[in-house]
């Protein structure tokens, strides 16, 4: 299944260790432009760590990360990000938060924009996230869901190559959450974005993504059962069918089976799949196990 064609985001043989503890263990991933990747995995398996690597907040212990042909460096305008919280600047109003990236000249074409152009552009986005009536409020005057919508507008105005989201809806109540999921999908379709979306909610992952990735530390390989320092690998990489609403996901038997299967493969500490047996059925999936992992004798 190895594909040598250049992809938008490429991750090759990436390891990340904190001290001697390996967190990410030989990660390989290729993502196409416009893909919506959902990433799930047990708590503490290293999802946020992988996001920080792609974002450039941290560098890998070894391995390569490439975005659109360029090696990934410190965070910059090419990669937008939305965290679960603290994405907004509390001392700026909604409008100021959204226009900040343009006013401070972060986007290359923004230097020629007048104040009015900038406001107009922000207004278009604020309308899309249905916050055009709240432009003068401060973040603390908004609900959690509204704050996250501002954060989305704030990130989108930069037209990033890839939008990283780390449990963006994790702190919201179920109704608001469903609402946000629908808005996000709409925006994704309109803006043709590439999205990397972390969640611990399987249904959310299955509903939103075109591609489902599961990161897991519960597996085995030919480094032997007693090998202690295994980090997480991508244990599931599948294409997802598109559905119309989050409720469809919850009620379709097809999705229920899929979710059950992934729970078993990635979330069950008792169920140790061999790294060679991972369900990596997505057309872009590829792995390069080391000789030790794959048990190839030299």
């Amino acid at each position: 299944m190895t594909d040598d064609k250049q992809r938008y985001l490429e991750i090759h043989d990436v390891y990340k260790a904190y001290g001697s503890k390996v967190i990410l263990d030989n990660i390989d991933l290729k993502v196409d432009k416009g893909e919506f990747c959902s990433l799930v995995g047990p708590s503490g398996c290293g999802k946020s760590t992988l996001l920080r690597l792609i974002l450039g907040e941290e560098s890998p212990t070894s391995g390569k990360l490439i975005l659109d042909g360029e090696t990934i460096g410190h965070p910059d305008v090419n990669r937008g990000v939305i965290f679960q919280r603290y994405s907004l600047f509390p001392h700026l109003s909604v409008m100021e938060n959204v226009t900040l990236g343009l006013r401070l000249g972060g986007r290359t074409d923004a230097k020629s924009l007048s104040d009015k152009d900038i406001r107009d552009e922000a207004m278009v986005l604020l309308k899309k996230v249905r916050l055009d009536k709240h432009e003068n409020k401060y973040p603390h005057q908004l609900s959690g869901g509204m704050q996250q919508r501002v954060a989305i507008a704030q990130a989108l105005i930069m037209k990033p190559k890839i939008l990283m989201m780390d449990e963006p809806f994790g702190a919201l109540d179920p109704d608001t959450r469903e609402d946000m999921q629908l808005s996000l999908l709409e925006l994704w379709e309109e803006e043709q974005m590439t999205i990397f979306f972390i969640t611990h909610d399987m249904e959310e992952a299955a509903f939103l993504g075109t591609r489902l990735l599961a990161l897991s530390q519960y597996y085995t390989d030919d480094r032997g059962r007693n090998y202690e320092n295994r980090g997480s690998k991508i244990a599931v990489d599948r294409k997802l069918p598109q559905v119309a609403s989050p409720t469809n996901v919850k009620h379709s038997p097809e999705f229920r089976d899929l979710i059950e299967e992934i729970r078993e493969q990635a979330f069950n500490p008792e169920y140790l799949q061999h790294a060679k047996e991972f369900n990596l059925s997505h057309p872009n999936a590829f792995v390069s196990l080391t000789q030790e992992e794959a048990g190839i004798k030299r």
Partner: peptide, 27 residues
């Protein structure tokens, strides 16, 4: 100040001086 904000500022293309005087200072 949450580190998220500093990362966020970088993804908005804000320079380090702007970060210091327009984002951190007012806060």
């Amino acid at each position: 100040i949450p580190h998220e904000q500093i990362t966020k500022a970088a993804t908005l293309g804000i320079s380090q001086l702007q970060l210091a005087y327009r984002i951190i200072l007012p806060q």
